[in-house]
Design a protein around this nucleic acid. Sequence first.
DNA 1: AAACGTTTCAAACATATGTTTGCAAGGCAT
DNA 2: ATGCCTTGCAAACATATGTTTGAAACGTTT
Lengths: 208, 208
Amino acid sequence: MAAQSGTVERILDTAEVLFAEKGFAETSLRAITSKAGVNLAAVNYHFGSKEALIQAIFERFLAPFCAELGASMAQLAADGETPDLERLLRMMSRTALGAHGSSPERLALFFRLSGLAYTQAQGHLRRFIREQYGDVFNRFLTLLAKAVPDVPPLELFWRVHFGLGATVFAMSSMDSLRALCKSDFDTELSAADVTQRLLPFIVGGIRA
Amino acid sequence: MAAQSGTVERILDTAEVLFAEKGFAETSLRAITSKAGVNLAAVNYHFGSKEALIQAIFERFLAPFCAELGASMAQLAADGETPDLERLLRMMSRTALGAHGSSPERLALFFRLSGLAYTQAQGHLRRFIREQYGDVFNRFLTLLAKAVPDVPPLELFWRVHFGLGATVFAMSSMDSLRALCKSDFDTELSAADVTQRLLPFIVGGIRA
DNA sequence: AAACGTTTCAAACATATGTTTGCAAGGCAT
DNA sequence: ATGCCTTGCAAACATATGTTTGAAACGTTT
């Protein structure tokens, strides 16, 4: 098998960038294939449909991330450490970063795609993600609950999602916010900088 | 002029709901006009284009909101009150609610549209919104800065946007989060409930 | 009632999109 | 080399979309 000129990877690489830039519906297969330098029919041949391509992109993102996060949580349990909120979030952040070649830009891209998945395309993607990787997320949530025993579970549920929202939004509009920051404050911040500022905000919000 | 069978309003009402549900690109003019019970050509006749329709929707949302927010800030300044963070946010929330017929659902719809504006359609809408209503937002920001003098302006800038992100995201996925909350905790929360929980989170995050 | 501007309508238009098809090219076993 | 399966390709297909058009319907003014 596998002539391996790398068609599949080239499609995935190109598509995830274009989708993140313009959105799913706004990005045509022709735009993807032409920029990737492959034939138009290649997408339908290798993935079956545009929807399946989108799912494949998320799978490529989420599979290594969830694997690493699971491993991190397992090791944390093995060490018998008392989970601390800030430490947990930092672990999550480090894992997310590590799973994608330690590139903050790529991490931002992932969050931007996640944001799109939550706003657009109500249907298939959200179901796919929850069914596929929902349990890892839930395990992390129960870990969080142990870290903040004074916050009732229901309250925690909402605050975690508020924090997730802050993250997704910040990453989604990272570029324009950084531009705005530069024009308003003459300060150029990196993606890593923003992430560092995000963490205390979430911790403060969850602790309230 | 004005035969006034309410075609324009019916288009706006229908379009804002459909856009919020499915996104801009995913909602066709035919879907809008058929559900609104008007002719397909009516959109292009009354608004000129689909883009102009989208802008008109945001204008209808933002114009009364910014007017009321401006008035509230003016009165606050006239009273000479010391601005308090929680009070300010509550004022903002109350104003936003009041500007749209005191319907939490409609407010959620507005935030969902805002979220879409920030993720999709990078171009025309964001420019339009910032040029049209940016100054009111900036005035509110300087008010906030006075309320939290211990937080440096740059830090505040980012935390406010984190809070905005949490809000937008929460409102955007309000329905699915409420469903998830019901299935996980057997607790049914109203949109107003969620908003009430959101406020302490943001306050905590900004104060950090 | 006649003339005018505004609004509505069905139909057509041009185009962009996801998908399918039929065949050629390439690698790998027998 | 022959046969076979996988991959690549250009072209066509079917359809959905935003937009335009020309005439009919309506209300107002003269």
